[in-house]
Amino acid sequence: MLKGLAITPPVVGRISIGRIVERAGKRLPEKDDQFTLTTQVQQRGEWLLHPLNEQLHKATSGKLRAIPVRMLFNDPDLNLRADYSLFARETGRPMCVGNGETCRRVAGDGIENLPCASPDGCSFGQQGGCKPYARLNVLIGDEDEMGSFVFRTTSFNSIRTLAARLHYFAAVSGNLLACLPLELKLRGKSTAQSYRSAIYYVDLSVRVGSTLEEALTQARELDARRKSAGFDQAALDTAARLGFANGAFEDSAEEQAAVAEEFYPSSEPAKASSEPPPTEPGSPARPTLREKLERQAVLLGGAAA
């Protein structure tokens, strides 16, 4: 095994809840209210749809807001890897990755192991835009039992919800998480931070039409069949754990490009977060989120006075 290279689950496709659109010469993220399954191939700047995307759409009446999945591993933290991450905006290369206690940071002479104070307490992270970043690998369909779809997200709501669900399902199933029939579900909510407009996040639940008790029964039956066939889930988890630990950072050069496009997609990355979106000719300029928050702070300060 090559040292310094993280060995990650084989990926056959991507799961997204948005897409990249071009506006005024810039490639910008546009959120959606449904899932999209794509291949890992791009054509003319667009990710090609995976055949399962159409199949799942046909099975639903309307938008694709639920996907039947299984987990690869019994250990929740192997299925969902979440870190505080700071990426180089131009390339998507990880510059600092931490868990709130320790971090690995790229330095001039290599990689340093340092304390991690989380984004709010780290001056280095505040300067560069450190934020939560997670990757979830799931199995969809029966064509490839080791080939996963990856969902990448910087959504705190998705990360917190998925982490809680995975740990809860692992606990109640007696550590049979990889055998549970589950589904990814898109949920919406409104908050003060979103100015009461709908935002969407990803949740995990038992499949529609099934109860938790029925799912647990199916998990025990599948576990018994696998053991009878010689399937060693514990060994698979161990192999995955060793593979993730084999590299300083999980994302490869190809995945770094995907990170750059999905989370820092503007052709002028350093300015993307502070510039307002383009407006129609003659229309008033829309304030940025930073300007809205600054105005809100001024109003609150005035009210407090």
Rank of each mutant, 00 (worst) to 15 (best):
D223T: 04
K189Y: 04
R225C: 09
T217F: 09
S228H: 13
Y195E: 13
Q218L: 15
N175D: 12
T211P: 00
A229E: 15
G188C: 13
L184Y: 04
K189P: 09
C179F: 14
E221G: 00
L204N: 07
R187P: 00
R220F: 01
E221M: 00
A178D: 10
L216G: 14
D203C: 14
A215P: 09
G188R: 13
L182D: 06
P181E: 04
A224P: 00
Y200H: 14
Y200L: 04
E213T: 00
G188I: 05
Q193S: 09
V206W: 02
C179H: 10
E213P: 00
S197A: 11
A198C: 11
L177E: 09
T217R: 12
R220C: 12
S228V: 07
K185Q: 01
L176V: 04
V206T: 13
Y200T: 11
C179G: 05
I199H: 12
L184Q: 04
L212M: 13
K185C: 06
L222H: 13
E214W: 05
L182V: 05
R225A: 11
R187T: 03
T191F: 03
E183F: 13
A219M: 06
Q218I: 12
L180N: 06
G188M: 09
S190L: 08
I199A: 11
T211R: 12
A219D: 05
L216I: 14
L204P: 09
A215Y: 04
E214I: 10
Q218N: 13
R207I: 00
A215R: 03
Y201N: 01
R196K: 11
K185H: 02
R220L: 08
Y201A: 01
E221P: 00
A219Q: 07
L182A: 06
A198F: 05
Q193K: 12
L212G: 04
T211F: 02
L216H: 10
N175T: 08
V208K: 09
C179M: 09
Y200E: 00
A192E: 13
S197V: 08
A192N: 04
R226L: 14
A192L: 07
S210G: 03
Q193W: 10
A219K: 02
A224D: 02
K189N: 07
A215G: 12
G209R: 00
A215T: 06
L186C: 05
L186Y: 01
K189L: 11
E221K: 00
D203E: 11
K227R: 15
L216C: 14
R187F: 05
I199R: 07
Q218D: 11
E214N: 11
V202Y: 04
A192Y: 03
S197E: 15
K189T: 11
A198P: 14
R220A: 15
L176Y: 01
V202F: 08
N175H: 14
Y195S: 09
D203F: 10
R187D: 08
D203N: 15
A215L: 03
S205T: 14
A178C: 10
R226Y: 09
G188A: 14
T191I: 06
S210W: 14
T191A: 01
L177H: 04
N175M: 13
R220Q: 12
S228T: 12
L186N: 04
A219V: 05
C179S: 15
A192R: 05
S228Y: 10
L180M: 10
P181Y: 01
L186R: 02
D203V: 08
T191N: 03
E213G: 03
E213K: 07
S228L: 11
L222W: 02
Y201W: 03
A229Q: 14
T211S: 10
